[in-house]
Every structure is written in structure tokens, then in C-alpha cells.
Simulated assay, not measured.
Amino acid sequence: MSLSRQEVIKVVNRYIGVSGGYLGDFTYNSHADFYPEYCDLDIDPYAYPGTTRERFIEILSTQSAHDQAKILRGVLDRFDDNAEHPNRSRLRPELEGWIARLEGAAVVGVDTPKQTRAVVVRALADADELIRTNGATSAVDRIHTALHGHVLALCEAVGIEVDRETTMTKALKLLRQSHPALAASGPRGDDVARVFGAMATVLDSLNPLRNNASVAHPNEELLNEPEAHLAINAARTVFAFLDAKLGATS
């Protein structure tokens, strides 16, 4: 999905900055040099009417999503964080999230389950919005909460005793052991069961990632976008599988 008008204006007014009608410290010439030097794009701003600000807005608004990502990367490279522009440090993760979206970082799709806890529905919606606006790093905590809550709800639906202290890993193990729909069956059932078991082991690593490298806590170091997508997609894959197998029976 391409940048919205609101996002383009946010880049211009709040990240680059406009003062006295000037866009950052761009001159006509440095603006023309910006696209080949920082974005690897052959764009001639002199072909567009208006001021540098108006030309930049028109150019950024009309490029393909892929080229919009290149321009945003160029903006991050060209306009460094500094004390004169405190907004840049705060807004940088948001722009990085837009870049990931524009570059088509794949996210496994998950439908909202019909039977689950209210917190799961809310956490899934929050995760989608955070991925869209701030990037995958900001959504790791929400997808962890969604999957944990949904596994607990699935356990409760078939009478497996769990409580808020039951970890996601333990609850998923209980569900795998007790729910007949998750028993090995069908073509290569044992192999499928091993894949699912391996995914459950992968999810066990979500706990330290969520606790020590996400925005769930004031951690000094956060997951990079590719690693955050890996964690989110692992959780969403299990989520989608559980809902496909148990959605009609829970």
C-alpha cells in the first residue's frame, strides 16, 4: 500500500521540517541531486512546478510503493537526527515501518477468530495497526498477547484447566496432547505433527524476544524489522493453523 497523503505531509512537515517556506536545507540544486545520490532514482524535480516543498510532495506522492521506499530511505540517510530536530529520533521508527510496508515485507494473514477472548480480538487489531504505522518491531508484543490469549481460550473451550499464569508454551502443549483434532492423521500425519511440534518450539523463543527485545518493556535494544517479521509470522502461522483445525469445533 502506497503512502497516504497524511503520511507524505508528516514526512515533509514533521521529519524533514519546513521553515520560511524552505524544505529542510534543500536548495534547488541539492534537491535535484538528492534523488540520484541518496535514492538511486532518475527523477528531475525541475520537471515539476512549484517550490521545492511542493515538488517534493508531488514526487513522493506519485511514485510507486517501491520507489517511495527508496525516497524514504534517502530521507533517513540525508537528514540525520540532531538536537535541532528532536522529532526525527521519535519519528524514525515510524518511517522505517512505512518502508517495510512499502517494500512488501510479507506478513502471514490471520482472520479474527469467531470464538476467542475479547483481548485476542483487540490485540490482533492493535498488531495490524502497529505493523502498518510503526513497523513489525512495535507489534511483537501484541501478536504474542493475541496468540497466548487464543491458546488459553481454546484450552478452556474443551475443558483443559488453565489460568492466567499458564504460559503459552505449556498451554499449547496441553492442547496438542488433549484435543483430538490435533492428533496425527491424514497423509503424512506424523510429519505434519513434527512440523507443528517444531513450530511450538519456535514459539517458546517468542517469550524472551517479547520480554527482552520488544516494546512490552523499556528495553534498550529492540528487534530489527526483519527479525520482528520472523517472530510475528511464526506466531501467525500457528494462529492460522489452530483456527483452521479448531475454529469450527471450539
Rank of each mutant, 00 (worst) to 15 (best):
E225A: 10
G189D: 13
L230F: 09
N207H: 12
I232F: 06
N207R: 14
L206S: 08
S205A: 11
N207D: 06
R194V: 00
N224Q: 13
R210K: 11
S185F: 00
D204T: 12
N207M: 10
D204S: 05
E225C: 08
A234H: 05
A216Q: 03
S214N: 02
R188A: 14
L203H: 09
E227A: 15
N207E: 09
E225P: 11
V238Y: 01
L230G: 00
E220Q: 11
P226V: 00
M199D: 13
N219I: 11
D191M: 08
R236G: 07
A183D: 07
A228W: 01
L203Q: 15
P218D: 01
L230Y: 06
A200P: 06
M199E: 03
A240S: 05
F196W: 12
H229F: 13
N224C: 04
P187D: 14
A235M: 09
A231E: 06
N207I: 04
A240L: 02
V238G: 01
E220T: 15
V192H: 07
H217K: 07
N219E: 08
A231F: 12
L223K: 13
A200Q: 14
L206H: 15
A184D: 02
L223Y: 06
E227Q: 13
A213H: 08
V195S: 02
G189S: 03
D204V: 05
A183H: 14
H217W: 02
R188C: 06
A240K: 05
T201L: 13
S185Y: 06
S185G: 14
N224K: 01
L203V: 14
A198C: 09
L222S: 05
N224E: 07
L206D: 01
V215L: 14
E220V: 08
N224H: 15
L222V: 04
L203F: 12
R236K: 04
P218W: 07
L203K: 05
N212D: 06
S205C: 10
E220H: 11
E225Q: 06
T201C: 09
V192P: 03
L203N: 06
A184W: 02
N207F: 04
G197S: 10
G189W: 13
L206Q: 11
E225R: 02
P218C: 02
A234R: 01
G197W: 06
E225W: 04
I232R: 00
N224T: 12
S205Y: 14
G197C: 00
T237V: 07
L223I: 04
V202C: 08
R194I: 05
A183V: 12
H229W: 10
F196N: 07
P208N: 10
P218N: 09
M199P: 07
A183M: 12
D204K: 12
A235F: 05
T237S: 03
P226S: 02
R188E: 15
A198G: 10
L223F: 03
R210S: 01
I232E: 05
A234W: 04
A198Q: 12
N211P: 03
A235I: 06
G189R: 13
A228L: 08
L209Y: 14
G197V: 10
F196T: 14
V238E: 00
A231Q: 08
E225I: 00
S214Y: 09
A234Y: 00
V238N: 09
V192A: 12
V192E: 08
R210L: 05
S205T: 07
L223C: 13
D190H: 09
D190K: 11
D190C: 05
V202E: 07
